[in-house]
Nucleic acid binder design. Sequence first.
DNA 1: TAAATAATCTAGCACTGTTAAGCAAAGGTA
DNA 2: TACCTTTGCTTAACAGTGCTAGATTATTTA
Lengths: 201, 201
Amino acid sequence: MGSKERILRLKEETRTSILDAALNIVQTEGWQALSMRKIADQIEYTAPIIYEYFPNKEGILLELTRRGYQILGKDIREARDKYESAADQMEAMWIAYWNFAFTHKEFYQLMYGVDMVCCTVKNSMTEAEQVSAMLGDVIESLFIKQPVSENDICMKYYTYWSIIHGLISINLVRPNGRTTDELNQQILKDAIKGITLSINS
Amino acid sequence: MGSKERILRLKEETRTSILDAALNIVQTEGWQALSMRKIADQIEYTAPIIYEYFPNKEGILLELTRRGYQILGKDIREARDKYESAADQMEAMWIAYWNFAFTHKEFYQLMYGVDMVCCTVKNSMTEAEQVSAMLGDVIESLFIKQPVSENDICMKYYTYWSIIHGLISINLVRPNGRTTDELNQQILKDAIKGITLSINS
DNA sequence: TAAATAATCTAGCACTGTTAAGCAAAGGTA
DNA sequence: TACCTTTGCTTAACAGTGCTAGATTATTTA
């Protein structure tokens, strides 16, 4: 009776194909064009069967968010592992974060609510927490004085995140602004260095 | 025949009442709840007459955006005029910007695409340009070396804006994050001072 | 083969932005 | 006053949205 497993595998495939279809639509037509019927069209089913795999549209978005954090986590981890010193790691990680935002624009919009329809509270998603933890760990090791208080880490984390997220979202919302890539990279690296330096001063 | 003017005034009033109704709905129920029929309900008309005053829903949003920039412009101007030195002005203006974002949360979301449905390219809105110009002028006078290149101003402008917008949007999207107001104010002022100092070093 | 279960679809609800057609009241003109 | 035209506004509709209940079809089990 291996058919049980076969069916389970098929269901898993359909589930994945729903997510793939959703992503495909978003990447080609944007978030506002994503609809249940369009997803159904793409997977060659009718809309209601999607509800056999996800509770509602938000459920799909949530799963895509999870996927996004998995990619981001991988990118940041790999960037970190290329360097030894915490300062270098920090810069590499934020640049990876930056690159993720533009190479996976749609994911970023979903994950950080830039120009997005639904603003669900992403409470306790382990993938998201892993990303925070990685960044937090490196920030902690940037401090010379040890131990470092939770508050200190949190504050620096926010400082980094704010400027990077700010730069990203301005560029995502206004792709035709009069800033250039080099200018952005310059601001980005300067800002990271500045914050990093400010930690032990 | 003063009736012409009376009618024109009435039309202007209806137009304003549409905008007021829209704002009212957004403030009480959020952006996702804003619909043409709801606006019509509130002004005690039916939906189609709105199209006598605005080309479409986006037209209403555009007009609200304009209103938002008018308020923001006023706030920033007043903040600036309370101080003499450029550095003080700069800090006061960005704090005014910050305060605007939270006291007029809905406006800010509309103007800067945080968690918003429609991302229209706000091309050449004079009200928005005035805000940019005011901030740019103060940034220019922060420089000791004169004259200041357009590029220099633009870069510093972006640096300021990024960190402030980043801080704001993180707080707007995640109002229940574990950051406190004091922490935010601290980061904000530190960042402003840091950027201001970096200008002539 | 018959019954039970699973998979899928059709039809529909209430909502969205937007448009076309029509009605009724007001204005201007003879 | 009688007619005609313009204006203000409404009803009805279209095509789309997320989502659900019920019917239908296919598959598995007995």
